[in-house]
Write a protein that binds this DNA or RNA. Structure first.
Lengths: 246, 246
DNA sequence: TATTGACCTATTGTCGGACAATAAGTCAAT
DNA sequence: ATTGACTTATTGTCCGACAATAGGTCAATA
């Protein structure tokens, strides 16, 4: 038996990780501000005392998280990660966990009514205008499946944006990315529920304009329950994993 | 004025992106299964017809999302992204958006009561045992601020895991990562609310064992409202951005 | 004046080769 | 069954090179 001495596992990080962390910290701590250009690769290589290849690997590591983007396709720039950028990572993760419609719906049930409620007090005039425009659009494309799907997704997205809550936006990113496109897509093709969708959206919109959080929340709940029924009636099993569709 | 002909912006992707996408698709489509080793860098370079450097950059791109990890610190292996891996990306994003306590609390209000409710029907014996053990631990470390904080965070984490809903786990990752550590940390140091925390946790646990979703949800809501009051009473403003603490 | 063109420069994307460090495997010795 | 010595495969890092191109400057042109 070994003595009961325990050494900590020593943490030998490869250089590209170390560099990546340092850059990440510099960005998060505000040392390099959003919108600023990152030094050129050659500069960085010199500063950190490593080769350009190493720097490049470090940069790639950050690029995926959306912290770094490119201004004009050449120089790298520090960016606020947009929800869709981060959403892709999350979606990949969920797909690999074989997330089911049921699971996503449960999250939607937690977040979407909340978004409706919050939007009542936070929505600006512009937010409301965008929502109104979306309603008009929805009515127009009622019979075009693809366009209707896009409009439906946009409505929920606009609503979430109207909360001006970035945490909420990020938390519901997978809904935009995975859930609605696939699930609503199926439902719309199978049941043509355009009218029902529009009615729900209109009530939610009205509630927001009336500054009536309870009503907004309530209608969104109804809308989501309706949605669930749609899935159940369609051929797609509610407890099935969401299929991979690139 | 230019003629109203519009060409699509041509999408010239650098090779490392293309390669990264191809590997990503191969993984998501199940062509390479979870747990399998990725071919060696030299192999990949040959297969794709690019240099090893390019392959490496492509790999780094995926590594950040947690799709790739390493089995034994050498060969790369395909992994299911764990919540903490993805959580770090999301947290970075939120920090850069200067997310406030208020925003995170709102999300918590949407997700945590939901988790409590769901856990009632999904928690296994083992889940309950873990929760019970956590309660014992909490009682023991009641006066040790750091340990209490850790136990409190663990309780919520265990609860979320008991739902066996990966979408929910991922959505609430930033709470674990950002919100609780910082906010609870402050509250615990300032108010020593150990007793109140324990009582709430015990009620939630009891509700789960009784299979009483409404009660579980209700107590979690109370718990979160309590939490909010704690923040408001402490010196940290509720509408302040969460500080960057690496 | 505003667009075009020619030119130069800085920076990224990609290549190829090189070598050290180190997991992993093999086989013999204890 | 563990240790040790040896070999091999693979990653981490370095160096140097070059093509492609975005950006800037400045003159020529309509």
């Amino acid at each position: 038996m070994p003595k009961n001495i325990n050494f900590d596992k020593i943490a030998h990080q490869p250089a590209y990780r170390v560099v990546s962390e340092k850059i990440r910290n510099a960005i998060l701590s505000g040392e390099i501000k959003t919108g600023e250009l990152l030094p050129t690769e050659t500069d960085l290589a010199e500063q950190f005392g490593v080769t350009r290849s190493t720097i490049r690997e470090a940069i790639r590591l950050l690029e995926h998280g959306g912290i770094l983007g490119r201004a004009d396709r050449k120089r790298l720039v520090v960016t606020k990660p947009q929800t869709d950028a981060i959403g892709r990572s999350v979606s990949s993760a969920l797909l690999m966990h074989q997330v089911t419609y049921e699971e996503l719906w449960q999250v939607a049930m937690g977040l979407e009514p909340l978004a409706s409620k919050l939007a009542c007090t936070t929505a600006t005039k512009q937010d409301k205008q965008l929502l109104a425009a979306n309603l008009v659009l929805t009515r127009e494309v009622m019979n075009d499946h693809d366009a209707l799907l896009a409009a439906e997704i946009e409505f929920h997205d606009l609503l979430a944006k109207a909360t001006h809550n970035s945490a909420l936006l990020l938390a519901r990113a997978p809904l935009n990315e995975l859930f609605y496109p696939v699930a609503w897509g199926e439902i719309i093709r199978a049941l043509s529920p355009g009218e029902r969708i529009l009615v729900a959206h209109e009530h939610i919109y009205a509630a927001i304009c009336d500054n009536n959080p309870d009503k907004a929340e309530e209608w969104m709940k109804k809308h989501m329950v309706d949605f669930r029924r749609g899935i159940e009636m369609g051929n797609l099993g509610f407890d099935q994993p969401v299929p991979v569709t690139p």
